[in-house]
Simulated scan of single mutants.
Amino acid sequence: MDDAFPGAGIEIRVNGDRFETLMHQHGLLRPLTAAELSDGTLRYLLWIAALLTPRPPALLVLNEPETSLHPDLLPALGRLIAQAARQSQVIVVSHAARLISALDDSDGMQPVVLEKRFGETRIANLDMSEIPRWEWPAR
């Protein structure tokens, strides 16, 4: 949380039979309710919950996780994804250069760049022998 929103914190209150999410931010006189948060902030909070789950799945496939996020949040999202990749195999599909750059800075990440040539999608940056092994979890 602090990586993306320095000094901020999340509070979950029980309000009768409902839960209420509040975000405390430095400089604000009161916490913001979920209804007052931007779509991007809410989405980032959901990414935190999904990627830092106490029971991580064997495989995570993230399709354009940068959607609705402010560009300044993409490096923090990249670090969050890299942290999740220590426990799970993570495949990220993205067009966002800032997110890809943040992931490239992480140990163990292998970018696979795809390009379209004459209607055919090909791997642009690797030979077939260099393609990372995909390990599908057993059922």
Rank of each mutant, 00 (worst) to 15 (best):
R55M: 06
D104F: 02
A34Q: 12
E20W: 00
W134D: 01
D127L: 03
L59M: 08
G108Q: 07
L80E: 02
P6N: 04
E130R: 09
I10L: 13
R30F: 08
W47R: 02
L52G: 14
A50T: 14
L74F: 02
A4E: 06
N15W: 05
P132W: 05
P57M: 05
L103I: 04
R79T: 05
G9F: 05
T53G: 14
A50F: 12
G108H: 08
N125M: 04
S94T: 15
E115L: 07
G27F: 07
V14R: 11
R139N: 13
H70T: 06
M1Y: 10
P71Q: 04
T67N: 13
G108E: 03
W136I: 01
L103S: 09
S106N: 12
I91Q: 04
G16C: 07
A34D: 14
P56H: 12
Y44H: 10
V92N: 02
N15F: 00
L37I: 02
T67P: 00
A124L: 00
R55L: 06
V61F: 07
M1S: 09
A76D: 02
M128Q: 11
T21S: 00
A138Q: 09
R43W: 02
P56C: 00
I81Q: 08
G119W: 04
Q25C: 07
R79K: 15
A138C: 04
